[in-house]
Amino acid sequence: MEVVGRLVAMLALLLAGTALRRGGVLGAERTARLNALAYYVALPAVVFVSTYDQSADELLSRALLVGLIVVMLGTAGIAWVVHRNRSSRPRRSVAVVQSYHSNLGYLGLPLVAATFDSGIAAIASVIYGVLSLIQLPLTIGIFSLLGSTSTSIRGEVRRLLTDPVLGALAVGLVVGAVGLVPPSPAIVGLDAIGTLALPLALICVGSSLRLGSSSLDVGATGSVMALKVGCMPALAWIVFSTLAVDHAVFAASIVMLGTPTSVSTYLFAQEFGGDAAFASVNVFVTTLVSIVTLSLLVVLVG
């Protein structure tokens, strides 16, 4: 019953974001402000509160690092084989990238923080950091290989290095390493702000979803969906079971890797000469389907 309630609540927030955009309530300026609130305030608060009293050595184990690399590169390799015969290079690049590029910040991290204890949320924060550092160069490499672009790669790297969530992760780990104890009122306040991360993120994602029927390729979109919310978490389950990690690492890894295609892949497609309309459809479909699959994953790992 709890799963059904979570599923309904997540769907309601996602669709509310879409309805608010279509109704004109969330215009470009208000959407940007809402995104900024989630990205620069709520998500960093979640990360700091979950990591400031944790040991970096315990959070980032060799097994976790190996498992994340194997799952990410393994899924990308499978996607390359599955989509290798698509005649359109812009569409092929988008299909490959969206089969592994996960929505870690706007769905994975806030969902883990809202569902599990702070220990698992801390590991999810580290997973966000590690996968962000793997995803970006891999995505840029694939788009550069299959697309045509004049976009500055240096600018994309700068954007990653100034990511406020990664910054909060670094600060939290440093505070934990030196043994500083932040004032209790500050932690309570940040914790309260962090509870807004999931609803804000879902509304932001919902407001960004757009489905254009003229760009619907059932076979290609179905393959992307199957790889992203089906194959990737299944591969993660196999890999992390083989590595025999503890429950916290296992739960955080499965949920984070089971997230849908990131909204940012649509922006990457625009910047790097990919099929942006096709990318928008895939974000829409994988996000809606993932609300169900993520709820099931939470139950299975819980």
Rank of each mutant, 00 (worst) to 15 (best):
Asn103Gln: 13
Leu73His: 10
Arg89Val: 06
Leu198Ala: 04
Met225Trp: 00
Ala114Tyr: 09
Tyr100Gly: 01
Ala248Glu: 03
Asn85His: 10
Val292Ile: 15
Ser208Phe: 01
Ile142Tyr: 00
Leu133Glu: 00
Gly212Tyr: 06
Ala197Phe: 11
Gly74Tyr: 08
Ser148Asp: 14
Ala121Trp: 09
Ser61Met: 07
Gly27Thr: 06
Glu271Asn: 01
Gly302Ile: 10
Tyr100Val: 03
Ala122Thr: 13
Asn282Ser: 13
Val178Asn: 02
Ser215Met: 00
Ala63Gln: 13
Asn282His: 07
Leu227His: 04
Gly17Thr: 02
Met256Leu: 01
Leu173Phe: 08
Gly179Ala: 02
Val289Thr: 06
Val96Glu: 15
Met1Gln: 12
Val25Tyr: 14
Arg91Gly: 15
Val249Ile: 14
Tyr106Ser: 13
Lys228Trp: 09
Thr195Pro: 00
Cys231Met: 10
Ile153Glu: 05
Pro110Tyr: 05
Ala279Gly: 12
Val255Tyr: 08
Val255Cys: 01
Leu20Tyr: 05
Ala42Gly: 07
Leu60Trp: 12
Ser241Ile: 02
Arg30Asn: 10
Arg158Met: 03
Ser184Asp: 14
Ser253Gln: 04
Gly141Gln: 03
Ser99Met: 04
Met232Asp: 06
Glu58Asn: 10
Phe272Asn: 04
Ala56Met: 09
Gln54Phe: 04
Ala113Gly: 13
Leu15Gln: 00
Ala276Tyr: 00
Ala244Gly: 02
Ile140Ala: 12
Ala201Ile: 07
Asp117Thr: 10
Ser208Tyr: 04
Ala244Ser: 11
Gln54Lys: 15
Ala252Ile: 11
Gly27Lys: 11
Val292Trp: 14
Thr51Arg: 09
Glu156Val: 05
Ser118Ile: 12
Glu156Cys: 03
Val47Lys: 10
Gly108Met: 07
Thr261Trp: 09
Leu169Cys: 08
Gly119Glu: 11
Val3Pro: 00
Gly258Gln: 03
Gly67Lys: 05
Leu131Gln: 10
Ser213Asp: 01
Ser215Cys: 04
Thr265Ala: 12
